Amino acid sequence: MTAVIVEDEFAAVQNLERLLKSIDENIDILAVLQNVDESIEWFSTNAMPDVVFMDIHLADGDSFSIFKSVDIRCAIIFTTAYDQYALKAFEVNSIDYLLKPISKKSLEKALDKLENFSPNNNNSDVIAQIMKSIHQVNKTHKKSFLIPVKDKLIPVSADDIAFIYSQNKKAVITCFNKRDYTMDTSLDDFLKQLDPDLFFRANRQFIISHRAVADLSMWFDGKLAVNLSMPTPERIIVSRARSTDFKKWYMRTDD
């Protein structure tokens, strides 16, 4: 079996490759593609694999835009952190999906479905239905992250994150249990994956959880100092220009 992986998270790629090899050591992974443009170029110049594992959310856009430029006529298994109730379209079509973090059992089940897939299938109608289903959902942000820690991959729920800060061009995740995890990514990329109702980019160094905010203090020149319910590496200051937006976010009420 030949496969292509479209995924921009290094840890997720490692996990998927490990699981695939544990199921079938003869599987040939032809390419790992990290963004939309790279994927379009590869599928435009190479023969179709047997299966594509494709993350829905990529750094430069959603993966559905790939299908606007190339006709991928092979089995596609999406990997996603979207809520399963938003993805009913997958269940009634030949394309399957896997919720992150991916388990060996769910991967085996998806691969079993490949036996019934016809290489002549046209994915365009299925993709359109999936996009419609997803766009109807308000909450389409990640609910958990798979974080590499030594030789393991640790799932961390977004609900458990108190704040994220930048250190040496990496993102350090601090949870409410005071455990820290480091990811080789920028705060900008991390912010795109978080629910803006729950997280706010306070400044260049910090993304903070609404649940972690204890209170606010007036600071110099109209700025705000944000006090969290747990210690932080340095004081969190919101600029005067962003203070109004922050207050609106902080004072929001849940439905």
Rank of each mutant, 00 (worst) to 15 (best):
L98C: 06
Q129D: 02
Q205R: 00
A171Y: 12
V51Y: 02
K132C: 06
I236T: 01
K248G: 07
A86W: 12
I77H: 01
P196C: 09
V13C: 07
R240I: 14
F246T: 02
G61R: 04
S39Q: 07
L98H: 01
D151N: 08
V36N: 15
D96P: 10
A47K: 15
S243C: 08
D60P: 07
K142H: 03
M251P: 06
G222C: 06
A47D: 15
A86T: 14
D37H: 08
L16N: 02
V6Y: 11
L228T: 05
H57C: 09
L58R: 02
Q136T: 04
D125W: 15
A214H: 13
L194Q: 07
P119V: 03
I27W: 13
L146C: 03
L187V: 07
T232N: 01
L107H: 02
I66V: 00
M1D: 12
S229V: 06
V149R: 11
L216V: 08
A162V: 09
Y181N: 01
H135E: 10
Q167L: 12
M131N: 12
E17A: 03
K105M: 13
A31V: 07
D83I: 03
K113T: 11
L146S: 05
A212E: 10
V6L: 08
L99V: 10
N227P: 06
L98K: 12
E7L: 05
M218F: 07
I102E: 01
I134K: 02
Q136N: 13
L111T: 05
E91W: 11
W249L: 05
I161S: 00
L20V: 03
L19D: 08
L114R: 04
I130G: 06
N93P: 02
D55P: 01
R73P: 01
L20T: 07
I130Y: 06
L111F: 05
K223Q: 12
K21C: 10
D50Y: 08
W219Y: 14
H141A: 10
Y181R: 01
L187M: 07
I130C: 01
A89T: 06
S166T: 09
T174L: 05
V92F: 15
D180Q: 12
A241K: 11
S133W: 11
D55E: 15
S124V: 10
K139N: 13
Q34R: 06
F53K: 01
D151C: 03
T174M: 05
M1H: 11
V137R: 08
P148L: 03
E9F: 14
A241M: 07
I134G: 00
D71G: 03
V6E: 13
I154E: 14
F10G: 02
P196W: 12
I236G: 00
G222T: 08
I72K: 05
